[in-house]
Amino acid sequence: MSERIDFDQVREVIRIAAESDLIELEVESPALKVRVKKAGPNPAPETSASATATGAAPGADDQDRLETVAAPMVGTFYRASSPEVPPFVKEGDLVGEGQVICVIEAMKLFNEIQAEKSGRIARVLVDNASPVEYGQPLFLLDTSARA
């Protein structure tokens, strides 16, 4: 479907940007707007796709190793198990492998999503209660950080 966001394309844009000398790259199509901007001397791509949250850039550091945590399924992204409790994680938090970092709901089944690696949550890329597609970047995780 033409209206569908293609996250393979997003990843491709990020890859091209990461391997080039570009500082900033913006690609816009009717369904999608992607902006990739390198964060500092040791280029680590930071991304924002349409309808995702944007905020301050993560602190660039020579040791930063930012990895994208992608949605393993289609559904609704929730940062907390219910509206009245704090989010599982927030930017700056250290997480361990296997720690629950968000929930994705599909067919009224709430799937806990666990961190596959330990690190520091550098960036939360999606607003609470937003729909997410398979493979959509949810978090940037700085895997060089250790608890």
Binding site: V103, K108, L109, F110, N111, E112
Partner: peptide
């Protein structure tokens, strides 16, 4: 009503 959650 039905509400299902994964836990590990």
């Amino acid at each position: 009503g039905i509400l299902i959650e994964t836990a590990g």
